[in-house]
C-alpha cells in the first residue's frame, strides 16, 4: 500500500470539505473494496476521508412503504434487522449474500454503490426496487445512478448519505455466484409493486447493473415464472471473462429471473 494521509472528520460538512480539497482523496466507508485495491497498489489515493465517525450515516429507518438505509449501514445489519426482514425480506436476503460474514460486518451500502463493481449485489436491488440515492447535494433516481463500469452519477466529492428503497408487494433476489470471488456472475432482483409495476434489476452480467425491460413487460402481464422462462436474452454487450461467456450470462439472467419470480411468489 502506498502512503496516504488519513482523516476522520466528525461531521458531513467537514468530510465533504476535506474530500473536495484533496485531488486524490477518497472516502473510506467499510474499506472492503478500497483497502484491498490499495494493498495491491491498484489504487493509491493521497488522502483517505474515513466516514466512520459520521453517526447520521448509520441510521436504518423502516417506514410503511419505504426502507431507508444510511450510507454507513453495514450489510450484516441490513441482513439481520428484524424490521427489514419483516418489511422488505428480499433486501435483507440480498444483503446476507454479499461477500462473506466478515465482509458483511464491515461493508456498507454507500461504499458498495459508490464503487459500483459490476458484480456487486446492491445495484440489482437499487434498480429492481427503483431506489432513490440521497447525497450531500441531491437525490438521484436509482435508474440514473449507474453509468458504466465503476462509473456512477456521483460528482467528485459528492457523498452518498442514504438509500431509500420503496417497499414492493413481493420481491426476491437470485444470485449465481462466481466460484472464486463469490461476487455475482449474474444476480437478478425482481419486484412486483402491484398494479402492473414490475421491475427487474440485473447485476454481474454487464459493465454495470441494468434493468431487463422485456422481462418487466412480460411480468407486468402475468407475474409468474413462466412469463420469463421463455425469454431469450441477447448476449450482446454482456461481460466475458474466465468464469462465464456472454451467452452463459444471458442464459443465467433468464434462469435467475425465473427463480426469483418463483421465490417472490412463495
Amino acid at each position: 500500500m502506498r502512503a496516504f494521509e488519513y482523516h476522520r472528520p466528525a461531521n458531513l460538512k467537514d468530510a465533504v470539505a476535506l474530500a473536495e480539497k484533496k485531488d486524490e482523496g477518497r472516502y473510506l466507508a467499510g474499506g472492503q473494496s478500497l483497502v484491498q485495491a490499495m494493498k495491491l497498489r491498484l489504487s493509491a489515493p493521497t488522502d483517505l476521508v474515513d466516514l466512520n465517525a459520521l453517526q447520521d450515516l448509520k441510521a436504518l429507518k423502516v417506514e410503511p412503504g419505504a426502507v431507508t438505509v444510511g450510507a454507513m449501514v453495514r450489510h450484516a445489519e441490513v441482513a439481520s434487522s428484524s424490521s427489514v426482514l419483516k418489511t422488505l425480506p428480499a433486501l435483507a436476503a440480498l444483503a446476507g449474500q454479499i461477500g462473506d460474514r466478515q465482509v458483511r460486518h464491515l461493508g456498507t451500502i454507500g461504499g458498495s454503490l459508490a464503487n459500483n463493481d459490476p458484480a456487486a449485489d446492491y445495484p440489482a436491488a437499487v434498480l429492481g426496487l427503483g431506489a432513490t440515492i440521497t447525497t450531500n447535494k441531491r437525490k438521484i433516481e436509482g435508474d440514473k445512478f449507474f453509468k458504466g463500469l465503476y462509473e456512477t452519477a456521483l460528482q467528485p466529492g459528492e457523498l452518498i448519505t442514504a438509500v431509500t428503497f420503496p417497499v414492493p408487494k413481493r420481491a426476491a433476489y437470485m444470485k449465481f455466484k462466481n466460484p472464486a470471488s463469490r461476487f455475482a456472475i449474474v444476480g437478478v432482483f425482481v419486484a412486483d409493486f402491484g398494479g402492473g409495476n414490475v421491475r427487474v434489476g440485473v447485476t454481474g452480467a454487464g459493465p454495470c447493473a441494468f434493468r431487463q425491460s422485456e422481462m418487466e413487460q412480460a411480468l407486468k402481464k402475468n407475474f409468474a415464472p413462466d412469463s420469463v422462462a421463455g425469454i431469450k436474452v441477447s448476449p450482446d454487450g454482456l461481460n466475458n471473462d474466465l468464469h462465464a461467456s456472454p451467452e452463459y450470462r444471458a442464459h443465467l439472467i433468464t434462469i435467475m429471473a425465473k427463480r426469483a419470480v418463483e421465490a417472490a411468489l412463495k
Binding site: Y6, L28, Q32, K39, A76
Partner: peptide
C-alpha cells in the same frame, strides 16, 4: 464482538 478480516482495514478504522 463481530468477526472481521483484520487485513481488510487500516488500523485507524
Amino acid at each position: 464482538g463481530k468477526a472481521i478480516k483484520s487485513c481488510s482495514i487500516v488500523a485507524m478504522q
